[in-house]
């Protein structure tokens, strides 16, 4: 086994990039859930964002336009969900699941002509001096703009929810929609805005996957990232900074296991008498996330305090 191929610095750089799609999807879903809506369609919105972003970037040659259209794609799909659950009062769980299935199907259809095509490159921001500092330059100043924006978004969401009045109103709507209504707040309009924001974030995350991470279009390329994003929101107990932590944890384990596979870890295991197949290593990010989730949510009383009390409940206006 050659552990020297695992360089801690490139491990960290890789993890930050691997975590970015999850970070976008999860922070968007956090805002949606804080408003009291449970949208299980994150996976579907991500993959629609991925295909919209990829197709646009390839056709126009502009990755920036790709990200914009990717976000719009996710938001449009989210608004379909919003219309059905908020106005037609369909069940949120069932509609969210349907949204994922629908999104996967639509993306496969739209993406057909783009299979195997290469996308235009997304430039890394190179800051003179700063990016050239040894170690720190690579750790902190070697990413593309979307990664920086993602981290800024976490800060912005935290600020919005905890320090601004619209953020307080959004939390109030998620906490007790009847009380918010009786105080005169437009519950459904606020939720629709949150849903659209969540969709746009999921779309951006998807577009990052197809334009930067992979970077090409393959059917079903989100590979469960949307579900992990949903899990991260719960794991984070609906707190923005913990979403960042959760995304980095998942990203970190993903990159680590890839590195381990490359380092010949498996053949070394074989040599000491433990024949382990590569698939088991590929499972680890999901396993670790599930285990952390179970451990964290074992404390039921604490989890229930942070959960928005109206989460997943339909609001019907009376009177």
């Amino acid at each position: 086994m050659d552990l020297s191929v695992i360089d801690p610095i490139s491990l960290f750089v890789g993890l930050v990039a691997a975590a970015t799609p999850l970070l976008y999807a999860a922070i968007g879903e956090l805002v949606v859930e804080k408003s009291g809506v449970l949208n299980l369609g994150v996976e579907g919105m991500m993959i629609v964002g991925a295909v919209c972003g990829f197709a646009t970037a390839v056709t126009t040659g502009s990755p920036l336009l790709g990200f914009v259209v990717g976000a719009m794609g996710g938001a449009v799909l989210a608004l379909v969900f919003g219309g059905m659950t908020q106005y037609l009062l369909s069940n949120q769980v069932a509609t969210g699941l349907a949204l994922t299935l629908f999104g996967l199907g639509v993306a496969a259809l739209v993406g057909q002509p783009f299979t195997g095509v290469k996308s235009p490159r997304v430039a890394v921001v190179h800051l003179p001096v700063l990016s050239d500092i040894p170690v720190i330059g690579r750790l902190v100043f070697s990413y593309d703009l979307v990664i920086y924006l993602g981290i800024a978004l976490v800060a912005a969401v935290w600020f919005f929810l905890n320090r601004t009045r619209p953020g307080l109103v959004l939390r109030a709507v998620g906490e007790n929609h009847d009380a918010a209504h009786s105080l005169g707040y437009p519950v459904i309009r606020i939720r629709m805005m949150a849903i659209a924001f969540g969709g746009a974030c999921a779309g951006l995350g998807g577009a990052y996957l197809s334009l930067v991470r992979v970077p090409q279009w393959t059917e079903g390329m989100t590979a469960g990232a949307g579900w992990i994003a949903l899990a991260i929101v719960v794991f984070a107990a609906w707190k923005p900074w913990r979403v960042l932590l959760g995304a980095w944890l998942f990203g970190g384990v993903t990159i680590l296991q890839l590195n381990l596979q490359a380092s010949g870890f498996l053949s070394w295991l074989q040599s000491v008498g433990i024949p382990l197949q590569a698939q088991y290593l590929s499972m680890t990010p999901y396993l670790v996330t599930i285990i952390v989730l179970v451990v964290i949510s074992a404390d039921r009383t604490r989890a229930s305090v942070n959960a928005p009390a109206s989460l997943g409940k339909s609001f019907t206006q009376t009177g």
């Binding site: 009045r165 307080l168 109103v169 939390r171 109030a172 906490e175 007790n176 009847d178 009380a179 918010a180 009786s182 105080l183 707040y185 305090v305 942070n306 928005p308 009390a309």
Partner: peptide, 15 residues
């Protein structure tokens, strides 16, 4: 009551 259990007294009043 039109109050929000997970919010503070001040936040409830501000709403």
């Amino acid at each position: 009551f039109s109050l929000f259990e997970a919010l503070t007294v001040a936040e409830n009043i501000a709403l």
